[in-house]
């Protein structure tokens, strides 16, 4: 099976779908990260090691963005 193609098709469809229906960038980023995580955990180990290492960069970047969003929200709540 061509796991790369499956990965790309699902990610593209999902990205197009949520970019049309989500009105906030932060929510979009979180949903995109969730989709990426799900797809990566399902198909990731079928990719070769070099691709896995490069996809890990996107993953860590996504997690970094997620942490920033969570911190922003926490500061907002704490400041009332």
């Amino acid at each position: 099976m061509n796991y790369k193609l499956i990965f790309l098709i699902i990610l593209t469809l999902f990205t197009t779908f949520i970019s049309m229906f989500v009105n906030e960038v932060k929510l979009f980023l979180i949903l995109l990260l969730i989709c990426f995580l799900l797809l990566y955990s399902l198909t990731g180990h079928y990719f070769n090691r070099r691709i896995q290492n490069n996809l890990n960069i996107i993953l860590y970047l996504g997690i970094g963005v997620f942490i920033i969003i969570v911190f922003q929200k926490a500061i907002e709540i704490l400041n009332g």
């Binding site: 790369k4 990965f7 790309l8 990610l11 593209t12 990205t15 197009t16 949520i18 970019s19 989500v22 960038v25 979009f28 980023l29 995109l32 990426f36 070099r50 691709i51 490069n54 996809l55 996107i58």
Partner: peptide, 18 residues
């Protein structure tokens, strides 16, 4: 949203082109 999505997809296509 679409811009961010396209950048991510473009990046992944670049990774897959190895």
């Amino acid at each position: 949203n679409l811009g961010i999505g396209l950048i991510v997809i473009g990046w992944i296509v670049l990774i897959f082109s190895h």
